[in-house]
Design a protein around this nucleic acid. Structure first.
Lengths: 354, 354
DNA sequence: CTGAAAGCGCTTACAG
DNA sequence: CTGAAAGCGCTTACAG
């Protein structure tokens, strides 16, 4: 491996001149520049980024701290982050906390693993990253993480109480309200909800969205139509079973995620109910399989890549010292209308058109 | 940020002594060690890893070059890599090539993007990584990648011609043979295959596995039972339609991946065929939704995490200079028996027991 | 435009 | 066991 000193000797100039010629930070005469470039080509010289980092105390590296790289939204978020950061010449140091197997589906219990998180931040700081993006796998408020010293921290897919940190999340409440409204506009009056874990902040927000839509339409929410699941397929299957056993079963089900919606599909198939003819079902997440179910599932797509892109942009702003970086950004979701819902016979015009 | 020099002054020793006390590479008297440790605690001193790297020319960083972090097996492979490498004190520099949108499902055309790959390797080399793991998203032979100078390169989920590089893949042929044998043992004689892209090496291997099983049982493979898909749901749907329209339709379908198997499910539902009563279906990949389909899909699980773990281990061996690191490791898959197949009525004893 | 020189914060023979 | 010193490969005032 050639060094700058060797290039200088080969080109018969000083190392300072080589440095200036390569960085372009100062003018260098055409003749010397040519000689330098030739020597570089000849030796296949590459600047030693470690030495440069030591000198400038800038590494050009951003730490990405992922709760679990296998988490549903995580790869897409990381994709967005890497795209935006690579454009700006940064590289990514990835730290994977592997919390999925520890937390299972009890995402709200993250605080039990705060030690791992802080150790991850420590490792990233030790590597001298210039900033950190924390990638969560379940939207919630994070308030007990140690602030890294002197470098910005951005939360992707999670919120923070810390006034210094920045977060990027998505619209839970409004999204569920929107998909519920669709059902209502199709004439559904008996709409049931299969919720996620009761303790989850996501569950609370999505429930609020459902309530808002139902209240707005003056529709009742009988307690037997509100079923508590745990985000898993199995709970969707079971709660759908309970719903179908009711004297007056619902004509539509809003499941708080696609996995539980798939459970509804299975229960419906088992009981000979056809979707959407006998029952409308909607989900949330737009997992890849949503389009593979039969019939394809109407659901809500999260702006995962956009979350990554935006989080990276916010970090870049902090790094540039831009003032007034928004503390929290909430991105809209997209309603994916497919074939799992149907207007109720005799429903007439959509409600909004009456 | 405190430096080692400041610690030395505070503890009233030389910087050499501080270094030795911290690294443990030489004995330091108890008294001096205590003074050093106190100063470290007092100032919250952290060793500057950049300076250390410059001095030792070791960064403790491994480059992970992923064709696309969103690719089906990629997050799990990266999870395995990060686990094994973190255990050994290495950190991961992630470079994401984003080839998914460029290649779509024509994975065999990667060579068109060899430029991106080589640029990715270059960037990783510039960052002075000590080794590189290339994470593919479709198993195939890679032979045109520039060898990084002086550092080991390991391929995960892909093969290589290069005699110097190491690769870790999984068993395609044997896995398809195994699942096909299951069907045959259940009494199926008319077994159709929905293949992936004809040009894909994976397709060829899986086809060979299917052929081996059918030949081994003395069963015919009429040309109309061999359908060419393109790995996508839609093609599974269409080819299943063509199969059902045959005068003598198959009683079982082997789909070369889960997405196409899901397409079969949809076509079957559309035509009123019940799975597994009227038709047995198996897939490949064990995507998350395989267990969510109704009925749950029998399929083959890839050893993705194990591939990552093994690839990392191979790299570590290369780094340690261990001789005879196996050039290619082929890991077994796991058959996931669920409810999408059924023994043909009157099939009697399994074939092997007759 | 150019170059000699200091210094970023470590590690490691080397001499004692 | 201990410390003075060289040096890893750069960048950047500074003086000319």
């Amino acid at each position: 491996m050639a060094t700058m000193k060797e290039i200088a000797e080969l080109a018969n100039v000083s190392v300072a001149t080589v440095s200036y010629a390569l960085s372009g930070k100062k003018n260098v005469s055409q003749a010397k520049r040519d000689r330098v470039m030739n020597a570089v080509r000849l030796t296949n010289y590459k600047l030693n980024s470690i030495a440069k980092s030591l000198r400038t105390s800038k590494t050009g590296i951003i730490g990405v701290l992922a709760e679990d790289i296998r988490g549903l939204p995580v790869p897409e978020i990381v994709d967005g982050i890497s795209q935006r950061l690579t454009e700006s010449g940064y590289q990514l140091l990835l730290s994977n906390l592997q919390l999925l197997s520890k937390l299972y589906n009890r995402y709200e219990q993250l605080s039990r693993y705060i030690g791992s998180v802080n150790r991850g931040i420590q490792l990233l700081e030790d590597a001298r990253v210039e900033g950190i993006i924390y990638v969560a796998m379940h939207d919630r408020r994070i308030d007990d993480i140690r602030q890294p010293a002197g470098i910005p921290l951005v939360f992707a897919y999670a919120d923070s109480d810390d006034p210094n940190s920045v977060s990027v999340t998505y619209e839970n409440q409004r999204s569920v309200a929107a998909v519920t409204c669709c059902l209502i506009e199709q004439g559904h009056r008996r709409v049931a909800l299969i919720a996620g874990h009761p303790a989850s902040p996501v569950t609370k927000e999505r429930l609020a969205g459902f309530r808002a839509a139902m209240d707005g339409a003056g529709l009742p929410m009988p307690p037997e139509y509100l079923r508590w699941g745990d985000w898993e397929y199995r709970s969707g299957f079971e709660q759908a079973g309970a719903l179908f056993a009711l004297t007056v079963p619902p004509t539509a089900i809003v499941a708080m995620n696609d996995a539980m919606a798939a459970g509804c599909y299975a229960q419906a198939a088992l009981q000979g109910l056809r979707i959407p003819d006998d029952l409308s079902v909607v989900g949330f997440d737009n997992q890849s399989f949503a389009a593979y179910l039969y019939p394809p599932l109407t659901t809500i797509a999260l702006p995962n890549k956009q979350i990554g892109l935006t989080a990276a942009q916010r970090l870049l702003w902090k790094l540039e010292g831009k003032p007034d970086v928004p503390a929290n950004t909430v991105l809209p979701c997209e309603l994916m209308v497919r074939e799992s819902t149907r207007a109720l016979p005799g429903a007439g015009q959509p409600r909004s058109a009456r």
